[in-house]
Amino acid sequence: MLQDAWFTVQAIDSHTYAISEYGHWEKVHSFLPITIITTHAHTDHIGSHGEFDTILVHPQDEAWLVHGITGLSIEQIRRDIGRDLTLTPPASFNPDSYTPYQGKPTGLLNDGQQLDLGARTLTIYHTPGHSPGHICVFDQPSGYLFTGDLLYDETPVYAFYPSTDPAALVQSLDRITRIAGVSRIFGSHNTLGLAPDILQEVTLAVSQLRERDLVRHGTGIHTFKGFSLQF
């Protein structure tokens, strides 16, 4: 594990690395290929996009990447990105003057698309709900499922903003439980690497939420074993 004042680089295996920001309240994880695969275009997931030549995103999040998220002010973005820091940010980053990346992607990602990286092939799953163009990425040879902001632990998965869709998010959760061969789940926040048996809990959660008519905005936080959702 390599560590500096802000970024922690951890080897998941011999050819997979996570770059983590544990000093930020959202404990954001990025997973390294040189090509940028955008799970979704929220501010905390596109911070260094401008440093790379190849940026991919799902078509339904393309407008956010190009123009910013409609209705989200720069003042709110700066408040969110700069609050509750427990480590000193890099010298190049000032939360008070931070401006999110905006630009046209070099390519678009579609459901079922496969990306050949040479030693591995990644499969794209369109999993909307947290954002319209949210995706998950499955590395079949290793069994790693990168879930972005669809599934992680410790803090709630958000689906209460006007731009979110609780029903689509629950449908997306249901979908990832049906992916065969998952050996490890890597969400974009909090614990780095979750055991695949959390998908059994997701199956139960999906069933309970639907049966109790809770899959809609305003029903609050729903806590399950290992994760929670906020509608």
Rank of each mutant, 00 (worst) to 15 (best):
G107S: 13
D116Q: 13
H130P: 02
L145N: 01
Y125S: 07
T121K: 10
L109D: 13
G143Q: 04
F138S: 07
D111R: 10
Y101C: 01
Y144M: 00
H126W: 14
L117I: 02
P90A: 08
T147N: 06
S97T: 15
P132C: 03
A91C: 07
Y125K: 06
G148T: 01
D116S: 13
V137W: 07
L150G: 03
Q114R: 15
T106F: 05
F146V: 11
Q140I: 03
G148D: 07
T121H: 02
D139Y: 04
P90H: 05
G148Q: 04
I124W: 10
T99F: 11
P156G: 01
I124P: 15
D96L: 14
L108P: 13
T99H: 00
G118V: 09
P90R: 08
I135Q: 12
T121W: 02
Q114D: 13
T147Q: 06
P132M: 03
P105Q: 07
V137G: 03
T106E: 14
T121R: 12
L117S: 07
L122H: 07
S142N: 13
P89Y: 08
L109C: 13
L117G: 14
G103I: 13
P90C: 08
G118M: 03
L109P: 13
F146Q: 04
F138W: 14
P128T: 06
T155C: 00
Y101H: 11
P95V: 00
I135L: 14
N94F: 00
T155M: 05
P128D: 05
C136R: 01
D96F: 09
N110V: 11
S92D: 11
N94W: 05
L108W: 05
T99V: 15
L109G: 12
